[in-house]
């Protein structure tokens, strides 16, 4: 049985199986935002995803940004919201804003 909020087990399992893993974490939110601070999305270079940092609105954009983190290990701070042109494209329909920390595991 899987605790749907505990992404660390998934991150460890994927890393142990040889995947290149990145972890995205909600570090701040403004206005209505579907996922609280601390919520996590775990991604692999091979395209697997578990968890979430929004209601499904920005995960694809985080996955795009993760290409750089996979490649050079760079930690990134990503901002999404209605004032952000790119986030508008990916559709943060709730009108909130959020900041996501994206880091490589290992």
């Amino acid at each position: 049985m899987i605790d749907t909020e505990d992404m660390l087990e998934t991150a460890a399992a994927w890393h142990d199986s040889g995947e290149t893993v990145a972890i995205a974490t909600v570090v701040d939110t403004w206005g209505s935002s579907p996922r609280p601070r601390g919520s996590r999305l775990v991604l692999t270079r091979s395209g697997r995803m578990a968890g979430s940092v929004s209601g499904g609105c920005v995960e694809a954009a985080v996955a795009d940004a993760a290409a750089r983190t996979f490649a050079d290990g760079a930690t990134q701070v990503l901002e999404f919201g209605i004032t952000n042109e790119r986030a508008w494209e990916v559709g943060l329909a709730c009108g909130g804003k959020l900041t996501v920390l994206l880091e490589r595991l290992g």
Binding site: D6, L8, E9, A11, A12, H15, I23, T25, V27, L101, E103, R104, L105, G106
Partner: peptide, 23 residues
Amino acid sequence: MTPETLAALRAARAARRVEVLAT
């Protein structure tokens, strides 16, 4: 995050210990 940090966070959870990860 280092694998060591990840392992420590998982161990704390298993031991029912609160930890704060400061980034």
